[in-house]
Nucleic acid binder design. Structure first.
Length: 390
DNA sequence: TAGTATT
């Protein structure tokens, strides 16, 4: 009851490493809310403050655990901290180094950390994090520096503000995922209001974010299921789950919690290319054509797989129509018809799937779908030899 | 112009 509690951040699997500095009151491994996977860090509470300080001195940055590419971090948790003191700095010139930035911010207080963000090639991203020892120092830097000058190579004046909260970071990441998948395209602007389709896309993005550690195939299957459910509650189809292959299932199983060993090795360190949310999010995504619309050939699918869409917004291009119909299956062609003389859309087009069920799902969900003042007409394309009485 | 992680 009278013991002093200190919380420490730590990358580690092993309680024994920490027990040598004193009695542990509590060890909380941080896990993903949805997958149950540990996130490679934990909060450790000692019974005595002295133990925490000893552990920090002995371990912080002193040792790199197996499978990790950086030394272990052992430091007081932010909850032990002194309020908001970390700044995000934007609109830095790309040639500025950590040291340059530090010099710029030093006059306002003691800097605990100063890092310019860089891409994989080492090029500056033109922004940085600066952490002061106190909130007052951070505040002083904002007052003095925000908007105070425009650095060479920056497109507007210097930005100095408190770094995002955890919640804001989540939103930001979601937006990044969305833009990488290309789902918040100009189409969102045409659709305007928050309708069933945009809602489905938003839910898809949330699901993708939650599924970061699932196999790509499982993720795509889950997303498609979610999309169908959101768009058309009566058409929840059981097929997507069957498309999870044995190999991807095994990969997913590799993430089963294994505290004694796995804990030292965050999943992002083990499978960065396949499971990270940067670069190519899902290399095995069956609808990969979405990322290369310019390579999509205009061709027809088998009978019953081709649909006719009328009352498209004037501005809709092939790729926007493609994106609109991707949730229903593998699109092999998407073509908006254009007037040869004016190069203007004729407001109708054709989409071809590789199977009739996708075409039917698209018709079910999208026929009568309102965009602006108009409603889409979506039906099967007439066979070429059909009689046309008019 | 948003990092390797935060009960």
């Amino acid at each position: 009851m009278h013991s002093f509690k200190q919380i420490i951040n730590v990358y580690s699997n092993s309680k024994p490493i920490f027990e040598q500095f004193g009695k542990i009151y509590e060890l909380t491994v941080i896990k993903d809310k949805y997958t149950g996977m540990h996130k490679g860090c934990a909060f450790l509470t000692y019974c005595a403050r002295e133990s925490a300080l000893k552990a920090q001195n002995a371990l912080h940055e002193q040792k790199t655990l197996p499978g990790m590419n950086r030394p272990i971090q052992v430091k007081p948790a932010d909850s032990e901290g002194r309020g908001d003191r970390k700044l995000f700095v934007g609109m830095l010139g790309k040639q500025l180094s950590d040291t340059d930035v530090k010099k710029m911010f030093e006059p306002f207080g003691s800097i605990e950390e100063c890092t310019v963000l860089r891409g994989p090639d080492g090029a500056s991203k033109g922004c940085a994090f600066v952490k002061y020892q106190s909130n007052a120092e951070a505040q002083a830097a904002i007052s003095a520096l925000h908007g105070s000058r425009t650095l060479p190579g920056a497109s507007s004046s210097l930005v100095v503000k408190f770094a995002d909260t955890e919640k804001e970071r989540g939103i930001r990441r979601m937006q990044q995922v969305a833009s990488q998948l290309g789902v918040i395209s100009p189409m969102s602007l045409h659709l305007g209001a928050y309708n069933a389709y945009t809602q489905a896309l938003v839910q898809q993005q949330a699901l993708v974010a939650q599924s970061a550690y699932l196999s790509p195939v499982a993720t795509v299957a889950a997303v498609q299921m979610q999309q169908l459910a959101a768009l058309n509650p009566s058409s929840i189809i059981a097929t997507p789950i069957a498309s999870i292959t044995p190999s991807s299932a095994r990969l997913a199983n590799a993430f089963e919690p294994d505290l004694m060993f796995n804990f030292i090795n965050p999943p992002t360190a083990t499978y960065p290319a396949a499971y990270g949310l940067v670069g190519q999010p899902f290399p095995h995504q069956p609808t990969l054509v979405a990322q290369q619309p310019q390579q999509l050939q205009q061709r027809e699918g088998p009978e019953g797989c081709n649909i006719f869409i009328y009352h498209l917004p004037q501005e809709f291009t092939d790729s926007e129509m493609l994106q609109m119909f991707l949730p229903f299956g593998n699109v092999i062609s998407a073509k908006v018809f254009v007037d040869r003389a004016t190069n203007q859309s004729k407001c109708f087009g054709f989409v071809s799937f590789d199977n009739p069920a996708s075409a039917q799902a698209a018709i079910q969900s999208m026929n009568g779908f309102q965009i602006g003042m108009k409603r889409l007409k979506v039906q099967l394309k007439r066979p070429k030899d059909a009689n046309r009485p008019y």
